[in-house]
Design a protein around this nucleic acid. Sequence first.
DNA 1: GAATATATTTGACAATTGTTAAAAAAATCA
DNA 2: TGATTTTTTTAACAATTGTCAAATATATTC
Lengths: 191, 191
Amino acid sequence: MDSTNLREALRDYIKKFIHLSEEEFELLCDLFSYRKLEKREHLIKAQERCDRIIFTANGYFRFYHWNDKGIEITSDFYFVPSYTSFLTGDPSLVNVQAMESMEVLEISKSDLEKLYVKSRNIETLARKLAEMIAINSERHLFLLLGQTAETRYKELMEKYPQYIQSIPLQYIASYLGITKESLSRIRKSIH
Amino acid sequence: MDSTNLREALRDYIKKFIHLSEEEFELLCDLFSYRKLEKREHLIKAQERCDRIIFTANGYFRFYHWNDKGIEITSDFYFVPSYTSFLTGDPSLVNVQAMESMEVLEISKSDLEKLYVKSRNIETLARKLAEMIAINSERHLFLLLGQTAETRYKELMEKYPQYIQSIPLQYIASYLGITKESLSRIRKSIH
DNA sequence: GAATATATTTGACAATTGTTAAAAAAATCA
DNA sequence: TGATTTTTTTAACAATTGTCAAATATATTC
């Protein structure tokens, strides 16, 4: 996949949310810059401020931080690096790392805000993205709350089988709120 | 607090997000309707579709659902009843209940969408609300993941002492992902 | 204020999950 | 391919949390 293909993927992605005119899409696209990421490369590290949004068509990012005991906790697999930091301007609580080598388009917060003023549709797009992110978090919360670890894992298998296939189990475990050893036991007891 | 006061509280609340002209605020206000809720009254029940946003200046709502075993799980204390259902149009997964008798202003989704067309600022307000809700969920997620129950409780005490004071502990426990008995033990061991 | 309902705590025990250290399996890289 | 790194599994044991049933405490209602 090269820069042009990625651009087309972005176009398809945006179509799911809103119809942009060709001019609007060009306006937006011109402010995105293309970049290659190495596997394990960090998009952002904890304490840094996140001032951009990333689009990618291949691969996931991993969000992680360290708890009180210094254990690494994976909190999400997503594509907007530290959305909270992006919105608030506060330092990011999470590290965001490319799970595989990938190509991305990135746009800065300030450029995006300029576009809001120029194009109403682009602001509407931003609203719908925020809504989608809110829905995503709510879904993760719902998964975590009030279910046993086994149920959580089964639900993830059903709803996001691609996660289980492409993401190391140690990170899945963390996303489910358990240790990798616990997940391993659960997998054993299921099969 | 009467209808007029609630309206002023709404004005103050909105100011935190965006400056609306007096005309825009009137436009918005006219579509909100005033309503009194009894303690324990449900704003929405699971399986219903949520087609409105609520504003209140006094009191919380409780979001809850039942897990596989029929145990009641409290997932949030918030003021937009089932935001996911509101956005997607899908049936709500949660019940939303007034924690105390309160007065609210409510606006329907269709009215709100009409306003988006009439006023750009009101759409911007909607974007900022979505962003705030996304941040809220992320914060809750972060609290749940990778910390012991005791740490979670202490963190909640620090950051949201008003929750501990005004919300029954059984619901707090659930919000922290544990049983009321566990929370009771934790409180005992802390004091 | 007494009666009733709701919320919180307690204790004994069971089940789940975490911890540690090590082995086995799989993936990566030169 | 072979060596190295990373990931996953295993096992024994410890710690945490859940379950159930009952007692206490608190709040609500008439």
